[in-house]
């Protein structure tokens, strides 16, 4: 059942993004940024926590999930105060994803040429 929920929720987000691109004439980069920022806002609002609890990866894998993970870093544990603690907290969990993607992309560039 949780697979069905993940499927439906993830698919729904993709459909909305697709319609924004096709009908709303948004650029893909614009939609991607919108999803991430929405994830951040809904994450701080606490809504995204419940969304993740209910649909799992259907909330985590869309780009809004990246925004949620940014927010989650700040929200876990005692609230950080000040520029230093907050800046670090933003990357508490998101850092795992970003570091892996950057390093993985570098590794791919080490061994591969573009195929065209």
């Amino acid at each position: 059942m949780e697979y069905v929920r993940a499927f439906l929720a993830g698919g729904l987000v993709c459909v909305i993004a697709q319609l924004l691109i096709d009908r709303g004439r948004w650029t893909p980069a614009g939609v991607a940024s919108l999803l991430v920022v929405l994830g951040v806002i809904l994450g701080f609002g606490g809504v995204y926590d419940r969304w993740v609890a209910s649909v799992g990866a259907g909330a985590m894998l869309p780009l809004s999930g990246l925004g949620y993970v940014f927010a989650k870093g700040v929200m876990v544990g005692p609230p950080p105060s000040g520029l230093v603690a907050t800046g670090g907290a933003v990357f508490r969990f998101a850092g795992a994803l970003l570091a892996f993607m950057v390093a993985g992309s570098f590794a791919a560039a080490l061994i591969c040429k573009p195929k065209g």
Binding site: V15, A17, V31, L61, L63, L97, A109, P114
Partner: peptide
């Protein structure tokens, strides 16, 4: 083929980073 079904996920972001890295080596 999939449009936003592939680009608006974290996998799409990984593709964006990796494609640029590979392209500009």
């Amino acid at each position: 083929f999939a449009g936003a079904g592939a680009t608006m996920l974290l996998t799409g972001l990984a593709n964006a980073l990796a494609s640029a890295a590979i392209e500009h080596r």
